[in-house]
Amino acid sequence: MLKMILRRLAGAIPNIVGVVIVTFLLTRALPGDPAAYFAGPSATTEAIEQIRAQLGLDKSLPHQFVLYLKELASGDLGNSLSTGQPVLAEIRTRLPASLELTLCGLVLACVTAIPLGVLAATRPGSWIDHLCRMLATAGVSLPTFFTGLLLAYVCYFLLGISPSPVGRLDVSFPAPATVTGLYLVDSLIARDMETFRAAAAQLILPAATLGLFVMAPLMRMTRASMLGVLSSDFIRTARASGLSGTKVLYTYAFRNALLPIVTTLGMVFSFLLGSNVLVEKVFAWPGIGSYVIEALVSSDYAPVQGFVLTMALVYVMLNLAIDVMYGVIDPRVGIEG
């Protein structure tokens, strides 16, 4: 088990290297003058030259790359131009908010999409099957930022059933003591149900927005994969052995169907992390997405770079987790891999 995780980790290294190179290239080797960029629009030529030397931009590209690696290794992602604060610290405090949102979106999507997909697969051609097909196509067509706005308008403005769709917690509640940084978890640890409920109320709309978007590919995959598994020989064996319908459906069919579903999770995470930025903007969610948008507005590049790198690393880690999960479900992987 540990060996498998290590092997997967080793397999992820080329991706991490690739990610680091690309983020480096994005700032240094592209057209335009990064020094002018970092110096700001009103800088004099001397100031620009000074910054060039300061950033090491007068050195050769490979040399710069080595410097960049050194900075990364010491956890230095540079400072934000507008606030002067280190980017890493800011990202670290904001990351839990983004992760909480992303994970809740994923959970919402899974608990709706997977049962619906299973249902559709067990009744092919029924109305629920058609509904799922329609939902799946409509789901991937939703611009997340628009669904978010729509949900906020309907639930807050029209129906008044949700709190003001701004931020992680209503201002009247103090943030729970930080343990994990996830408000839902932290408030539970503090046994503060009031805060938990308030945090959940703020979270539900943005999480649902995210969930709606990624429901579609999950549902599609669940349906297709269940249909495939249900018509396979070993399901017939299970039925011929008199196993109960639920046993056949869950222990035999569903666990096998999970394999392709877990594989699609990679794509789902890509969607989730990307749309996360949009949803954070819509709901003024204080995560790293909002941070990067503020930085973009002021052409502040260090946070953007830090953000891209963080997201990519998070994504690589999530993919790693998916691989491990696959290995846990499928005994064949350990041998072949």
Binding site: D233, R236, T237, A240, G242, D330, R332
Partner: peptide, 20 residues
């Protein structure tokens, strides 16, 4: 099924649950 009438199948490889 399985108790009174049992069945064995054409292709034993695919007739068994691969991940159990």
């Amino acid at each position: 099924r399985g108790r009174e009438i049992a069945m064995i199948f054409q292709n034993p490889r695919t007739a068994l649950n691969p991940i159990r």
